[in-house]
Design a protein around this nucleic acid. Structure first.
Lengths: 220, 220
DNA sequence: GCCGTCAATATCGTCCTACGATTTCATCTG
DNA sequence: CAGATGAAATCGTAGGACGATATTGACGGC
C-alpha cells in the first residue's frame, strides 16, 4: 500500500535528467531548452516543466525567469558548503547505523561487495553504482526516514560531474576505500570509529577540493 | 544581479500555501483539489501543478497518482526522525555562527528583540515571526548557504501546525526562551555553549513529542 | 575599429481546452 | 448487509495560443 502504484511521467523525466547527469549526458552549466527536451523525451511541455520545477527544488537545476532552466554548476564555495552539510548528515547516519546493533549486516555486505567489484574493473559507471549502493544501504541501516529526504546527494552528483575530468583513478579508489571503512565500522557497531571514518572521508574530499583548479568550478 | 528580477506565479502560489499552513488556513491532512485552488488563487492549473510539484519536493504536500495532493500529516515517528535531523543541522549552524567571531551582532539582536516582543503580547502569530526571524538570522550568521536549502524547516512547520492545539502557552514561551539562549551563546561566540543550547532545545521538544496524544499525529 | 541603439528572433511564463485514466461514491442487486 | 456496478469527480498528460522577456545580430555614430 505504500508502494507507488504506477510511476508518473514527471518522475520518469526527473529520473532521466538525474541519471543523465551521472552518466555525463547532461553537463553542469548546460542550458535546458524546453522545446528540445520535449522532443527528445517524447513528452509534453506541461510534464517537462513539472519535472524541472521538481529538480529545481533539489538544487539540481536553476530556473531563471524568461531564461529557462540549466543544470546547476557549483562554485568552489558552494561545494565547500555542501560538503560541510553533507558530512554532518552522513555522520548522523553512520552513528545511527552503528548504534542500531541489530543492523542489516547483509546490506552493508552488499556495499562492501560492490566496493570490491569496483576495485577490480575500475569503471566509472561502477564507481557511481558503488556510491549509490553505499548511501542507500547506509540510510537503510540508519533507519531515519528523514535522512534520505534532506541529504543533498543529488546535488553532490553535480559536484562529482564537475570534478570528473580532474579526478585521478587513485583518488577514486581512495574514496571508495573510504566508503568501505565506514561500512566496516558501522557493521561492527563501533560508533566512534564510524564517525571518525566519516570525518576522514570528508577531510580527504575537502583536501581534494582545495587542490582542484578554478576551471572545475563555476565563477563566483 | 543575483536578485530574482521578478517573482513568478509558481513561487507566489507555493508561498501562499506555505504561509497558509503557518497561519492555519491549510491544515495537515487536508486534500488540495486543483479546481478549487485555481479558483481561490486565481491562477491556471499549470501554474498550480508546478507549485504543488515544488512543494512535494520539500515534503510539504504528498501527491498520489490520480488521488491528488494533500498537505502532509506527519506520524510520530516521522516527527522524531525530522527532529533528529533538524537538530544536527541547527547544531552545525550554531557552531558555525559562534565560531565566526565577526558575526552580525545586529542580526541576532533582532531575533532577541523579537523574542522579547513575543514575551509581551504572546500571540501565536508573533511566535511564528520569532521562529522565522531566529532561523533566518542563524543561517545568515552561520554563512553556509547550503544550510538553509537542506534544513527541513518548512516540513517542521507541518509539525508545528499539528501540535498547535496541544501546545500550552508555557511550552511556547519555553521554546522561545530556547531560541533566546541559542542566540545569546552564538552572539558570545561560545561554541560549546551554543551546541549545548541547541541540544537543550531539542531535548525539550522531543520530550514534548513523547507526551503528546496520538491524535496529534497521523496514523502509522 | 569600438560602443551604444534597435529591431528580429528565440525562448519562456501563463492560460486555456481537451480527453483518457483512475479513484470515489452512491446505487443497485442478491 | 456484502459485493457488483455505474456515474461523477478528479487527476495526468497533451497540445495550442499569446504576451513577456532575454538574446542575438545588424546598424549607425564616434
Amino acid at each position: 500500500m505504500n508502494a507507488p502504484a504506477t510511476i508518473g511521467t514527471t518522475e520518469k523525466v526527473a529520473d532521466a535528467i538525474r541519471s543523465g547527469i551521472r552518466t555525463g549526458q547532461f553537463v553542469p552549466g548546460q542550458h535546458l531548452v524546453e522545446a528540445e527536451l520535449t522532443l527528445r523525451l517524447g513528452i509534453s511541455r506541461s510534464s517537462l516543466r513539472e519535472a524541472l520545477r521538481h529538480l529545481s527544488g533539489d538544487g539540481i537545476v536553476a530556473i531563471h525567469r524568461y531564461r529557462g532552466a540549466h543544470i546547476n554548476r557549483l562554485t568552489r564555495r558552494e561545494v565547500r558548503d555542501l560538503l560541510e552539510v553533507l558530512e554532518q548528515l552522513v555522520r548522523l547516519a553512520a552513528r545511527l547505523g552503528a548504534a542500531s546493533g541489530h543492523a542489516n549486516r547483509s546490506l552493508m555486505d552488499a556495499a562492501l561487495d560492490a566496493a570490491r567489484r569496483h576495485d577490480e574493473d575500475g569503471d566509472h559507471r561502477s564507481y557511481i553504482a558503488v556510491r549509490q549502493a553505499f548511501y542507500d544501504c547506509l540510510f537503510e541501516v540508519a533507519g531515519n526516514r528523514e535522512l534520505p529526504r534532506v541529504t543533498p546527494l543529488r546535488r553532490a552528483d553535480l559536484f562529482r560531474a564537475q570534478i570528473r575530468p580532474y579526478q585521478t583513478r587513485a583518488q577514486q579508489d581512495s574514496h571508495t576505500e573510504g566508503y568501505r571503512a565506514i561500512a566496516q565500522t558501522v557493521n561492527d557497531g563501533d560508533v566512534e570509529a564510524a564517525e571518525a571514518a566519516v570525518a576522514a572521508l570528508f577531510a580527504q574530499t575537502n583536501a581534494m577540493v582545495d587542490e582542484l583548479p578554478d576551471v572545475a568550478f563555476d565563477v563566483e
